[in-house]
Design a protein around this nucleic acid. Structure first.
Lengths: 322, 322
DNA sequence: CTCCAGGGTGTAACCGGTTTCAGAACGTGC
DNA sequence: GCACGTTCTGAAACCGGTTACACCCTGGAG
């Protein structure tokens, strides 16, 4: 390549990196040679020499929830904008989860890591620190790592208050088990915020109206079927996620209950499906959280202090199920 | 690292790659040193030396359609299974699309490329060939590149036949413009298969019942609003994708039409949302197509002849909208 | 005319692995 | 005791970029 243009490799490198010392005439000759040979620089060599890869990694339970996909869009968007490539480490099962972190060899090919919706074990965090890999947590936290999170308890309270305003007093809850395989915590937080708001309104906790199970639409449908079957069923249900809320809606339909007449339903997240089925929900800025986390990570990689995290506030989006 | 274990770098390399000639005692010493130092091999150096990166790239309109996400899951699944990392090149806008392919520099960091739902320009294909990069097309085609596609025309015919069986004779169509920014072709193929089936049943083409526009739920909603507004509206509508079918459903609801009473609706793809809203649709194996394309690509990378492409057949999934 | 400044380019070391090939260490057969 | 074969290990070249540094060349000042 360099020979073909009649210059040295150093000059080629300078041309490729737009270092202005090169004479225009030489620059053109190099560009011509690049075109003729269809030459592509090796990013592997570049990474090795520079010590950085110009790529960021994302560890996420890509398969589990659609909210993650939405966050991911925010990430992809921003990463592309800043010229970073994106490496996706999908964590499908809890076993894979262990693998993804244990096998840190794979993580050395990224300049930074974004962890989405997945809690970190202490030893994993320690390993990341030791490798000096910049990390940002999105929708999850592990002090003292930088994070982009929402106020899940506050969101739970919003849901409760919305239902209280509508006159409901007997409100059920469908969510994840506090101890689930992935270690998701949001559901439990939302439940606590929800309960706290009810108590503030003078309504005592009613564990009999709570149904916890594995995450998923079908699981939620089964849980809700039990919750809504009896005569003493609640007049409204708060589901810890839109996915689960849709399961609740299906259960209601299965039982011939009208929504919101017989039972009102509110979800959490505002994924795209929520708009489709007319689900009232607590909106959280999914895409923005990904974008925001990416900004933070890129700043960290550059060694700058991260920009302040500024997310749109949570808000109830009223549709047709309440 | 090598010094710390009292051996040479060659030996460390042999231990890392499980080359059995190393004496067990030495192997243990190296492993011990690795543990003590928290040493991680540099994948950049490895890639450079080996000439491969152990990663595959995916170019896809990640932002546009949810069917792409589903295919992507199939890809991520298989890639992880085979120890390959995944690089995601999201193509959000037609402009980015040009960039993604033009800037092939970025593609040199993968051992192979999966192109999902995105037609290739001739010059792009030529560039890929010149770089000797193995490529597999999924849900799109560019002879003579290997591809994983479904029979869109056949699928369109299935949809038509289903509606004919239900007694419909006046059937509308909502789909993409044949000349759209991304170059998607499926919609047009499905329309042609659909029309052909109608003609076979003795029903002449009715361009007045066809509405074409940009892809998207809201766009489809607007198109369907026009289609369903008049007195001479069709008794059924075939939408070229589930996303658009949902838009049609919304338009029907907007107009106070019952489904399937006043108007039946059938979509195409069987994305997750279809099950949620009870949409009758032509199921295509989305996830499987991703997995299948990945298998093909990995075989190509290894230099083997690809396994035969064997996808589940298309089939109408009847739900509540027909 | 000589000297110096400074812009433009080439040489070579370096990044951290893999791999070839030579050679050390040890055991065996005669 | 020596030649030889095996088994294991190390030295060094190589992958393809980046970059510090040396050097050449030109123009302007003295």
């Amino acid at each position: 390549m360099a020979r073909h243009a009649g210059v040295s490799v150093a000059t080629v490198s300078r041309v490729l990196n737009d270092i202005p010392v090169v004479r225009p005439q030489v620059r053109d000759r190099v560009h011509a040679a690049i075109g003729e040979l269809g030459y592509r620089p090796s990013s592997a060599a570049r990474s090795l020499s520079l010590g950085r890869s110009q790529a960021i990694g994302v560890v996420a339970p890509f398969f589990t929830t659609s909210s993650v996909v939405e966050r991911l869009r925010g990430v992809a968007d921003r990463a592309a904008e800043h010229g970073y490539d994106l490496m996706l480490f999908a964590v499908e099962t809890p076993e894979q989860r262990a693998g993804a972190f244990r096998d840190f060899a794979r993580l050395d090919r990224v300049d930074g890591l974004l962890v989405i919706s997945l809690p970190l074990m202490d030893d994993e965090a320690a390993a990341l620190r030791r490798d000096h890999l910049p990390v940002v947590m999105v929708d999850t936290a592990h002090a003292p790592l930088p994070q982009v999170v929402i106020d899940d308890m506050g969101g739970g309270a919003l849901a409760a208050e919305h239902l209280l305003e509508k006159g409901h007093r007997r409100i059920g809850f469908v969510g994840d088990l506090p101890a689930n395989a992935f270690g998701f915590r949001s559901s439990e937080e939302r439940r606590r915020g929800f309960c706290a708001a009810l108590e503030r309104a003078g309504i005592p906790p009613a564990p009999s109206l709570e149904r916890l199970g594995r995450h998923g639409r079908e699981e939620a449908r089964a849980l809700a079927a039990g919750l809504l079957a009896g005569d003493d069923r609640p007049t409204a249900v708060f589901a810890a996620s839109d996915t689960q809320a849709v399961g609740v809606l299906q259960a209601a339909a299965d039982l011939g209950l009208t929504v919101p007449g017989d039972v009102a339903v509110i979800g959490f997240d505002d994924i795209e499906t929520a708009a489709l089925v007319g689900l009232t929900t607590v909106r959280q800025p999914l895409r923005q959280s990904g974008a925001c986390g990416t900004d933070l990570l890129l700043a960290l990689i550059k060694g700058e202090a991260g920009p302040a995290v500024e997310l749109d506030p949570l808000a109830v989006v009223q549709r047709r199920t309440t």
